[in-house]
Amino acid sequence: MSGGLFLALLIGIAFGAALEQAGLGNARKLAGQFYLTDFTVLKVMLSAILTAMLGTFWLGRFGLIDAGRIYVPETYLWPQLVGGLIFGVGFALAGLCPGTACVSAGSGRLDGLAVVGGIFAGVLGAGLAFPMLETFYRSGARGVVTLPVLTGLPAGVVVLVIVVAALGLFQAVAWHEQRARHE
């Protein structure tokens, strides 16, 4: 195993452990997000995004990492919009996403294993249908485009707006949970 692949394994172990510790190996907790009865998904995802975003921004600013060498996913407007809509329906049905399904299956849950099998079948089927989907798959190609580029705002301003919005959301969730406890 090369050093890069060993690193991938280690990063994966930490990733899986973080998901499991938060309870995201349990489909009921993830599904609860869609009924506003459990906010673990929002709390974990947003605080992870804030941490990685702020870390990349400030480490890049101080020259400790070369942000230009990080692979940024390219934007394909239509397939990512439609893919997101399709994915969301599947997520609400399955109660797990691909990463959390692996954690669920690993901790013994049969439903997690069924989701893992389903994802494999779905990717396989869509891959086999690729010749029919290819035109759509490549539509709306914009290359690497970030929110600062799109809006014309400095990266620091975009980061600040996201941080303020996320903190506001965290506070709103805290109030909602406090109200729900008193009922």
Binding site: P79, G84, V115, G122, L133
Partner: peptide, 24 residues
């Protein structure tokens, strides 16, 4: 679970990633 997984598989294929590779 299996049906939802299959639907997610199609969505992730089109979007070039899922909650991990795209959202996070």
């Amino acid at each position: 679970a299996a049906g939802g997984g299959a639907i997610m598989g199609v969505g992730a294929m089109l979007a070039r990633g899922c909650t991990s590779g795209q959202a996070l």
